[in-house]
Amino acid sequence: MTTQFSAKAVDLAATSVRELNAALHAIREGSNVARWQVLNPRGVHAVAAGVDADVTIEIDGDVGYYCAGMNKRATVIVNGSAGLGLGENMMSGLIYVKGDASQAAGATAHGGAIVIEGNASGRCGISMKGVDIIVKGSIGPMSAFMAQAGTLAVFGDAGDALGDSIYEAKLYVRGAVKSLGADCVEKPMDDMHRAELYAKLERAGAAGEVDVGEFRRYGSARALYHFHVDNAGAY
């Protein structure tokens, strides 16, 4: 017996985001449509938000706010750039952006991976809670603010105040870091960390593009974990 998988195209010039998302939410286990193609997004919001299915959604063009928000399991490919809050609060799955991502990419995301081929703007990985974010370009200011868990790997540079008030997230930056935020410090990068970073890149299909030996590691100094009057200036 053979299973036939097919693809389905949705043109947002003719179909509303509501209809698209309703169709994506209606996908049931065993659906034979394994690939969805979304055309003409033209920066509209909440494209493929709240999907919970093993499916690949390929979006041809630029998307607006909260693309693939709260994603579970799905692979969402954006052949363009993404607006604010890409993959916010994602639980699992993969988001792959060919272009740039705007502010707050991967905000509060709990799991899965986000790969951005271009640059990510400010507040990348804000309050991240377990997601792996790989940015092949550079990231903007105030990234990884209050980052709780997960890994942020940046091939390029990082803007001001990286990792301000960071908890236990792991930050790897290959280029220059303009400045570190409160309680974020550089930490030694040993073989274990290189191996861990390599594994993260490998899982996202980005291993081999860069030498993991060129990254530096940043994380929490944990000085703000309990209030102390000497640190009052950092609050």
Binding site: R42, G43, V44, D62, G64, Y65, S81, G83, S102
Partner: peptide, 8 residues
């Protein structure tokens, strides 16, 4: 303010 404005 949003990319949408530039998209055309």
């Amino acid at each position: 303010t949003e990319y949408r404005a530039l998209s055309r």
